[in-house]
Nucleic acid binder design. Structure first.
Lengths: 211, 211
DNA sequence: GTCTATACGATGATAGAC
DNA sequence: GTCTATCATCGTATAGAC
């Protein structure tokens, strides 16, 4: 009997397992078992295990980047009208807040967060190529906006500071999974809004410091 | 013929391949071929593939942590004598500088840097457990020293800021491998000293900001 | 003690018949 | 879409040469 959501069930299972165990450590058999579809269905719908990974990434990354780019463009448009340069904090917020807010959207989104963390750690991998291609327009726009907001910084300094800041973000997106080394009195599960501000306090100070 | 450096050759090959391709994507056969040893030599000398990974990690991590801890203790001892609280910058430097200086020590050390990046992205993996066990004493000491240096921060805020800062570091340790998305006019290969300062400017500002 | 050659059972991805 | 067969490769174990 035909099951119209076969593709989605495969995508969900693959997202979960790729995130939890990594691409190479996940077998097609475990994916198709979890999705309750036949082993060969992956090849039929996606062509290969690699193509399945790409589909998993794109399904969530593109909508997320649309939100991030939309918020950034709205901020820049507003600043044109008011003729005020947008602040570094507000620019970074358009990137950071939609990202951290993924956590509120359930376990599936958390899986995706972990998957991105893995991708960023495998520089030479196939997934990295896919990821970079889909991030580049947004990154260029972000870099450009920050250059206007922080005219005192050299391109070199700005470049590295952007990566310091986004590196922090990618690191903490993975951190909630590692429950070791958490001192007493520290709450790992903060409300998203508070966490966004906690992060922006840190990142903006580092971006804006003059030296 | 006896080859007294068989273990080292296996370790070198494993470090290189684990770093480049990841643990699961690396086969024992590719390691033993690169090391020009017999397939069974890994099991003979290390017991299993997992035990080999642990040996690869420990060989470099323990000496590195000895250097970092030694510099931190020296700083704290000097501050006791002069009765001055060490600065956040100097505390962080004891962690950051030996880490970034690994790059100067040749291609092998660069492999290890990439491997650590991979480990940090696989929260639930075996390697993470090994890594955490060997990092914990140093992390506790670092956290304690920073708490004294930044008495105005809550434990919660300090905890997250330390992870923001070290997250930046782990991210950029991997970055040199990804040559995409580097704007013109940006030099990826900076001298280590300059890069340490560039990083500390960012991280210290973020650590110290009051709000 | 070290190392080699070889074999084993499990699991990988994929292709082709249906 | 599914089922089954196929074949490569995996980590590991073992027997024996040096």
């Amino acid at each position: 009997m035909s099951q119209p959501d076969t593709k989605q069930r495969i995508l969900n299972a693959a997202e979960h397992l790729f995130s939890r165990d990594g691409y190479h450590a996940t077998s097609l058999r475990s994916i198709t078992t979890m999705a309750t579809v036949n082993l060969a269905a992956v090849n039929y719908h996606f062509g290969s295990k690699e193509a399945l990974l790409e589909a998993v990434i794109i399904r969530r990354l593109d909508p997320l980047n649309e939100i991030r780019l939309g918020q950034l463009e709205a901020l820049l448009k507003k600043s044109e009208e008011t003729e005020e340069v947008p602040t570094c904090r507000n620019i970074l917020r358009t990137f950071v807040e939609p990202t951290l807010r993924l956590r509120q959207q359930g376990a599936d989104a958390e899986d995706f967060i972990a998957l991105i963390g893995r991708i960023l750690a495998e520089p030479r991998g196939l997934a990295m190529t896919i990821f970079m291609a889909h991030m580049e327009p947004l990154m260029n726009r972000l870099f450009q906006a920050l250059a206007v907001s922080l005219p005192g910084l050299s391109r070199q300094t700005l470049f590295w500071r952007v990566h310091f800041a986004l590196g922090s973000l990618s690191h903490i997106m993975r951190y909630h999974e590692r429950h070791a080394m958490v001192p007493e009195g520290v709450n790992i599960d903060m409300p998203v809004d508070a966490f966004v501000d906690l992060f922006l306090d840190f990142a903006v100070a580092g971006m804006e410091v003059t030296q």
